[in-house]
């Protein structure tokens, strides 16, 4: 988008050293500058508190035209942070985005959303807007050696909760909207009949059962 329409790409993340690594590698891949929200007080933040802090940082930074987030994370996968940021910022948003076309004349975007059952929806959004991007929309670029070297000279802001003017009770565990009570391996209420034996024996037993018992082949 920058190559086509100009502008600047900033990357922002809230977290510890792992977030800093992601920001540095984003700079090496071509982003112009980075903002790292780093503070022990951010620890154990939930989606609500994280989205509030990130939105605050974007406002402090002077706003943006477009904010890109993922649909959901690999770990907690709640799928809420990006959309919550849109609400905190008061911007338009679209989730599960698989295609984006910028319309510079009208300061708007056309985006394709992926809905259930293989349906794609095209919507128009006024800018500024938040998009949550579906996995696989683009191929990430490799960070070249030159990119890695150049990244070291790029602007890298580090902001704490105090820098954002956030009170202690608005960040981290204190600012979260829920508590994690327990994390556990789910119980399986299973009806499965496990077929044992060597692979050949198990395969033969399975075919027998599919023919005689389930009668599906």
């Amino acid at each position: 988008m920058k190559e086509k329409h100009g502008g600047e790409v900033a990357v922002i993340s809230l977290g510890g050293e792992e977030a800093a690594r992601v920001l540095r590698s984003s700079l090496a891949m071509g982003a112009d500058r980075a903002i790292h929200l780093l503070d022990p007080k951010f620890k154990d933040s939930d989606e609500f508190a994280s989205a509030a802090a990130l939105a605050k940082a974007i406002e402090k930074d002077g706003g943006a035209d477009l904010l890109l987030a993922g649909v959901q994370s690999d770990d907690l996968g709640s799928g809420t942070t990006g959309t919550m940021m849109a609400e905190f910022l008061g911007w338009a948003h679209a989730t599960v985005v698989v295609g984006v076309q910028v319309q510079p004349d009208t300061k708007s975007l056309q985006v394709q959303r992926e809905l259930e059952g293989g349906i794609n929806e095209t919507v128009e959004l006024t800018l500024p807007a938040v998009l949550t991007i579906q996995f696989g929309i683009n191929q990430p670029r490799y960070a070249s050696l030159r990119g890695i070297m150049a990244a070291k000279k790029k602007e890298f802001k580090v902001w704490s909760a105090a820098d954002l003017g956030l009170a202690d009770n608005a960040v981290g565990r204190a600012g979260a909207a829920y508590d994690v009570k327990e994390i556990l391996v789910p119980e399986r209420k299973s009806r499965v009949e496990v077929i044992s034996g060597t692979p050949e024996e198990a395969a033969a037993k399975l075919v027998e059962k599919l023919r005689k018992e389930a009668k599906v082949i």
């Binding site: 338009a92 679209a94 349906i119 794609n120 929806e121 095209t122 919507v123 128009e124 959004l125």
Partner: peptide, 10 residues
Amino acid sequence: KRKILNRVEA
């Protein structure tokens, strides 16, 4: 802020 333009089945 959002306008629905169309829906197509893949």
